[in-house]
Design a binder for these strands. Sequence first.
DNA 1: GACTCCCGTCGAATCGATTCGATGCAGCAC
DNA 2: GTGCTGCATCGAATCGATTCGACGGGAGTC
Lengths: 350, 350
Amino acid sequence: MTVRPTLAGVAARAGVSASTASLAFSGSSRVTPATKERVLAAAAELGYAGPDPLAASLRRGHSGIVGVFIGERLRYSFRDPVSVQLLDGISEVLGTHGSGLLLLAGDSGRPPLEQILRMPLDAAIFATCGLEDDPALAALLARGVPVVAVEGPDVDGVPLIDIDDRGGVADLGRHLYELGHRRVATVAMPLRLDGTRGEVGAARRAMAHYRDVRHRIEGVEDVFGAVPTMETAGNAVAEGELAGRALLDVPAERRPTAVLAQSDILAAGVLSAAGGLGLRVPEDVSVTGFDGADLHWLAPARLTTVFQPTEEKGRAAAAAAMALVADRPAPDVLLPVRLRIGTTSGPPPG
Amino acid sequence: MTVRPTLAGVAARAGVSASTASLAFSGSSRVTPATKERVLAAAAELGYAGPDPLAASLRRGHSGIVGVFIGERLRYSFRDPVSVQLLDGISEVLGTHGSGLLLLAGDSGRPPLEQILRMPLDAAIFATCGLEDDPALAALLARGVPVVAVEGPDVDGVPLIDIDDRGGVADLGRHLYELGHRRVATVAMPLRLDGTRGEVGAARRAMAHYRDVRHRIEGVEDVFGAVPTMETAGNAVAEGELAGRALLDVPAERRPTAVLAQSDILAAGVLSAAGGLGLRVPEDVSVTGFDGADLHWLAPARLTTVFQPTEEKGRAAAAAAMALVADRPAPDVLLPVRLRIGTTSGPPPG
DNA sequence: GACTCCCGTCGAATCGATTCGATGCAGCAC
DNA sequence: GTGCTGCATCGAATCGATTCGACGGGAGTC
């Protein structure tokens, strides 16, 4: 391995100055085609593959890299179709701006704060990471890195890309209410990531990290008042099944006639629990979800759910990040959701 | 917004030299606690949040960022549990080394080559991107960026992290053969990403981009010789269903008694196709997969499949990348796979 | 008391490019 | 022939830190 050649070397060999060589590489500036060609030839001879991104970034003042924080460990986030769609939307817009996407996974345990601060980020997107007082958020802001929050912390100076969680769930609630349901229950995503499962009390509720989870509980209450709420330890089918069984495996007169799961994934688990207990959906119990993620494996059932424009959310977040990078203002965004009635909701039994 | 303070500014205010200030930040070197504190205090007053990663990286010569190429667009890759697990394994090891993971999605269309070359990568991992002659691969190598391939291009100087695709599928084949199957078919993942579906001929086969796809076909042939092979346009349940229907919706005497799908996802589609045609599994037709991804939505069927240590593959890839960055040699890795017999394979009918 | 050793601090070089303002040359018009 | 315009090229400053070798002063030793 010989030492990597530098722009200066190429310039010397081409018989031009470093500045001219730089111009030759930065594209179609005011450089004679002949000179440009000479520089490129010299580069080829020396095996110079183009300017060092690090040096260029330092000089330019930005790296073309946007950090995306996903709360949990990768493996959990990616199980979740919503995270994936979100990321896809983000990546799409970043791509058109020529920016890269640096994934920052929480890993729950060790705070990756130092690692984060070592990364040359032009901006950061907090995707579903709750927590107004996240140390990483504070650190980034202190450093002057523009931050965008997706259903995340609502902090001054941080554009918030949000959906109408509460209104959407309330729509679901009204749909069920109109069908005649009066005794319902909720299966909630984790209020915070500490592995807690079970009925959510007031104390627990006060500890909630996540805005969306809170809002989705409130949406139910807007229609039904306080209802039993089972918290899960993660947004996963198995968790939904656990919670569903806890709610449904009781005498019929105490059993909720409808279960509002906070995500389609959890709803899938509840459906599975219902099936396991010999309950028919929707004849014996109605089940609803949230996200509208089109879980193919639910076929032939079509889940009654609330569709949210997840990819659009991602695009909006990336667009906001790009705006901030360009020193343009980035307003908050509130995206609409839409009730989608499927085959898993119907009148209560009896 | 005031101008961001620099290390020099902090040093001046603390009454020390820039070098000392740098030492104070880089942790526990030979700096008097008192001095260190003075520097930190000055930093706090000025709102200096630590050294600029770009400048530090330039000086150090590396950025702490590893690029991970996933062939297709994000949305497709992440539908695939295998990609996700792989990424998770990679991220795990990268994390322990304090390195960041820069996601590079192909987006099929526009070549993101320029974008790639703008990124300050310490190393790159080609995850399931086939193609020995990928221009991005060439560009990175030309630039001197260490590259690792996961089931990817087999190029000199590029460590290959691989699994025994062929042997694993051959194990499946023998299992089926011993059960009595003689007329089988294969549902293949795309040989290249051009949206082609249908029976794979010799010409098409010569165009294959992907080593794993090729090897999994060969594994079947090792046991059964040439068999009908349906290519899909993507690794998705719907694609598997399409291919499955094409293979199974024929008179019983021409119908294969077993279908070897190249992935669990595709197998799920084939199962669905079989169900749609009123065929029982495994009584009327056996179905096998590959990956051992534990698709929860298959319950109660347990897929007969080949387990591959996907996460381990990711860890090995990341470890190899880290080795190369540290200028240590990184040997090829071949990970074992394991036949896992489930409830979807049995003797042929009749 | 002098010499040595060691440790904390400092200067200066360096990483590799970008960019602004200056320079010089050629062409054109009068 | 002279003066002006314009364009390609060049010099030098700059981005913000890291790091190596040198230096100086205090402590320990004989």
